[in-house]
Amino acid sequence: MFKQFLHGAEGMDQYLIFSMIVFMVFFAGVVAYLFLMKKEDAEELSQIPLNESTTLNDNTHENV
């Protein structure tokens, strides 16, 4: 009954292994990137949304 499924599984191992290797390499790269990142840099970047003190008073209004 499952003959069809087994037939379709040809080469399955290599796809899975290749995919996992690609991901692990990528993941290691991202972790290295974060490891090298200075804490103060991260803190500075995290403040960007809160750093809007430059907005002046509203100057133009429009009715709804």
Binding site: Y33, L36, M37, K38, D41, E52, T54, T55, L56, N57, D58, N59, T60, H61, E62, N63, V64
Partner: peptide
């Protein structure tokens, strides 16, 4: 919305973007 007025164009100011990269900055930035 009825209780206020749309601020269609909200004024702001900010320093112009400085193009050069600071020395000693890490590559990942």
């Amino acid at each position: 919305m009825k209780s206020g007025k749309l601020v269609a164009n909200e004024s702001a100011e900010a320093p112009a973007l400085v193009k050069e990269n600071p020395k000693g900055e890490y590559w990942h930035r």
